[in-house]
Structure formats: C-alpha cells, structure tokens
Write a protein that binds this DNA or RNA. Structure first.
Lengths: 268, 268
DNA sequence: ATACTTCTGTGGGATGTTCCAAAGTTTTTG
DNA sequence: CAAAAACTTTGGAACATCCCACAGAAGTAT
C-alpha cells in the first residue's frame, strides 16, 4: 500500500520467513518451491546477505540469530553505531518498576535490546515483534503484546484494535521512533504507525522520542504530534537553528548519546 | 583437563562452539582447521545433527535457532518431512474467504508457511509469532494478532487477554497442534497453551488437529479437550488399535498426508 | 510507442560436495 | 600380546552448486 511490492520483495520475504522455521534452507529447494530458477534464488540470497538478514552458505542460506537481525525494510543499516548509543542513553530514563510502552522501529528495537540487559522488574507494552523478541532473555521483564492487524512492513501490529487496547493502560514512559523531526514535531510515513505512536504518547506520563540526527529536518507524510506533546528527545547530536529553538521553546529535555546527560534540563 | 575425552568429542565440541560464532560452517573449512579429513567432519556433523545440536546443510552445518526448546526440538527435527506433508494436506481444508485460527507450534508454523503460498483472501487469527511471520509474504492474507503476555519459550502470547480476545471472533476453522494424542483426546505440557487451544476450538466451526504420528498415544500434563470436540485430524500415518477406534467412534475425518484424502470421511 | 533500466532464465565449464566401500589407523578389551 | 572394536583415511564415481556472460522478459520513464 504505502509503496509497491515487486515479486522480488515477496520472494525474499518468503526466504526470510522460511529461515524463521528451519535453521537453514537449500537453494535448490527454494527454487522449486518458489517457482524460479536457482540462479534467481542465489541472487536473492546474496542480496539478503548484504542487508544482513540472512547468511549465505554453500548450497543455500542460514538464518541469523533472532532479535539481532535488522528489520526487513531497514533503510539505513549504517546508523547502527548511533542507534546503539542512543539506546544506551535512553535506558537511563527507565527506573525499576516502571511501565513502558515501546513503539516499533529500528531504533526502538535496539533500545529494547539494551533494556533487556539492564532493567529490573519492568513491564513493557509493545506492538513490535522485534521489541518483544529482544526482551526475551530476561525473566524479570513482563511483556504485554498488543492485538491488531499484522503488518509485514515493520513486523508489528497496527490498526484500531491496537489503539483501543493501548487505551486501557497507563504507562510511565512511552518510547517512540519517527522517520523525521521538524519544527512542528515528529513525523512518519505510515498513517497506521502514527496512530499507535499518538496513542502511546497519550497514555504515558512522559513521551520520549528516539531518533538519530540524520532525521533532523526531514519532512514526511504525516505529523505524529505537535512538539509540545513530547517530554524528552534522545539523539546523537544536538540540532541547531530553528529546530533547536523549537525544542527549547517547548521545554523538552534533550539527551545526547555522547554525553548521556541532558543539555537542556526539563524546565520547572 | 585430565579427563579421558576422546579426540572425537573435542572435535565435535569445537564444531558446536564454532557455530556459536558464525551462523554456518563449511565442511571443508572445518576439515582443514581441525586437521582431519572432510569425511570425518561429515560424520561428526551427522552425529551432532542426530543429537539435535546442529543442523546439517549441504556443504556444512548451521546452528540451531535459539528460542525453541531443546528437548522438543530434538524429536521435531526428525519429523521435518512429515510435518511438511501434514501441512500440505491440511491446506486443502481451507477454501478462499475462510477465517482460520492458528495455534502456536512447530507443525502449525509449517502449516502457515504452506498456507502463505497457496491461499487466497483468507483471514488468519493467531497468537504465534512464527505463524504470523510465515504468513507475511502474501498480501491477500489478513493476519490478526492476539494480545497477551509474551512468552519467550513459545514465541507467542498467552493468558486471559489472549483468550478474551479470541472469544470475540468466529472462525470457520481452527488449526491446533498438540504434544500428544491419546484415546481421551489431544494433550499438551503447557497449561496456558491449552487454554488458547480450547478457546480457538470453541470459536470455530471445525476443529482440526495437526500432529505427526510419533505423538500417538503420548500422554502429557493436561488434556486439551475430549476427542469429540475435534472434527478433523491431519497426520502422516494411520493410527491403529484403540486410538483408531476412538477416532472413528467420534466421527472424526482422518486425513493422511501421504494420500491427501480422508480415509474416514465425516459421517452423516 | 520507444528507449531505458531492472529483473530473470539458460547454458556450460569449473569447482565442490556427497556417498560408498575398502583399507589403514588407533583404541579398547580379553 | 593379540584379537576385536571403533575410528579414520583414501580414492573415485555421481551429483550439486557456483559463477559468468548473454539474451529474453518485465516494468518504468521519456
């Protein structure tokens, strides 16, 4: 819907899905089952390997460790460093016993992964498979998963079921991602995803935006919420110009990943 | 250190250790690095595969997927062929436009994967990550995911949220798996999982049990439901003795994977 | 409609893997 | 010590996979 999906994308998704069931697949098997030539499958596997989704083997492909693999539609796999740093900074906002809502997205998934290592006795409410999977290791974390229409796009659930479910809960913190951040506020490409973000922000005491600096001043389809709805922003580099002013004007705490301390403390 | 460990054991331990680092290894590489012939490595891999520690591939071995129970997985890996056949037979029960509920489990996940290839305009309601992921590829399938407490163990959601959600829907078919099948009915080891199965069966016109013949006459912690609650069983080999009588007595349709046709058609 | 890009199937030579059986090696056992 | 058992190597035939370049197909833009 949001963008056209060619036959290639479907095929590659099937390959990844297959690897979710068995630890390794064979090129010849895939070729037969997908109705394409072995050479095409080989090219697909090669491409998926480049993106880090699978690992090429002689005769086929093997799956990567679950939770560590990037999302299917990961645009910028290059920002891993930044995201890791952002995640580590964001975890400091969570204290024992908190109830946190976590949105879907590459950055928030990374955040969840870091959270799994350090947090104690927290409850996480999420709509993202990647987030839930990342939190698996720890027994002291309770994960409540939302209902909804499953979307291949972000490997999570969306829609009115999701929002209605979220409405029933109260959280201390909501961690959301975004495709861009302008003076008006965070924005995203997907309408369904925006609604989930809005709902989470509405049910949490503090709304925390996680995004890397490459997304500053990027404008996308839909505005998630006005800047004033947020309470914190965690990023890797301080914005400048009007964006910085906008953040300051709305009394948002700005947390920099490199420092780990807010540059602009929450006012009052 | 001074343990009487044969060279073979050390070698095999090394292979498993190596797979902890990279998702797949190559027979020829291992042979060179371990200073033995390729044939020996092949035998080692074969043996480790039998024990369920690794998974043999063409040209080497791949590591096992994390998140699946080791004890369970052992038996299941041997039944890959059977499960594939069962899945293909079970898909024939679904017609265009159907609403189906799918339980979590290895067999049902495989079923979902096959379903993704063939089915048109169907709606799937599930509580399993593996099932949802397997269905991703096709755009003409709507996947509704249940809410609930996320369980790392089965990679799915369970609990009262899950069951309450399921109660709201009506389905044409419910596909469930089980750990065992006795004269009384299907049974399973996990109480939470049993409740989900029961709820699904209660909301569907037809209840279909998917399980391989190795699970015949195996008794586990909890009975899911009496035999009479089911309407179909899909398996790879016809049961015999009292179990066969019990199935016939309750007028269940028995579908055999090898044939693809029911041996005992639904009576009346 | 044409030109362009991207994707996919085909063929053949090179290379790699599997399987099998027999012979050689090491370890265990009586 | 010698026989037996377990393990490993070797060699060759059969078979799969890989890679490459090229041509046909599908889709997109001009």
């Amino acid at each position: 819907m949001s963008f056209p999906e060619g036959k290639k994308a479907v095929r590659q998704r099937m390959i990844v899905a297959e690897l979710g069931l068995s630890p390794a697949v064979r090129t010849s098997d895939l070729a037969r089952r997908l109705g394409v030539s072995a050479e095409t499958v080989r090219r697909d596997i090669e491409e998926l390997t480049q993106r880090g989704l699978v690992s090429r083997t002689y005769g086929g492909a093997a799956g990567r460790q679950l939770g560590l693999q990037p999302e299917f539609h990961d645009r910028d796999t290059l920002a891993v460093e930044e995201r890791e740093a952002i995640a580590r900074a964001a975890v400091k906002l969570v204290k024992a016993g908190d109830v946190v809502m976590i949105d879907s997205g590459s950055t928030t998934a990374r955040f969840a992964h870091v959270l799994a290592e350090g947090a104690e006795r927290i409850t996480v409410i999420t709509n993202s498979f990647a987030v839930a999977n990342a939190l698996v290791p720890r027994g002291s974390i309770r994960v409540i998963f939302c209902p909804g229409d499953f979307s291949a796009h972000e490997r999570g659930v969306y829609g009115s079921e999701t929002c209605a479910f979220l409405q029933r809960f109260n959280a201390d913190l909501a961690f959301i991602g975004a495709s861009g951040l302008t003076l008006e506020g965070p924005n995203d490409v997907e309408t369904q995803a925006c609604w989930v973000k809005r709902t989470m922000l509405g049910r949490a005491e503090r709304g925390v935006l996680l995004l890397d600096s490459a997304k500053f001043n990027r404008r996308h389809l839909e505005l998630v919420c006005p800047m004033s709805t947020l309470s914190d922003i965690v990023t890797d580099r301080a914005p400048d110009g009007p964006l910085a002013d906008g953040i300051a004007a709305n009394n948002l705490s700005l947390h920099l990943a490199t420092e780990g301390k807010p540059l602009v403390p929450a006012a009052i």
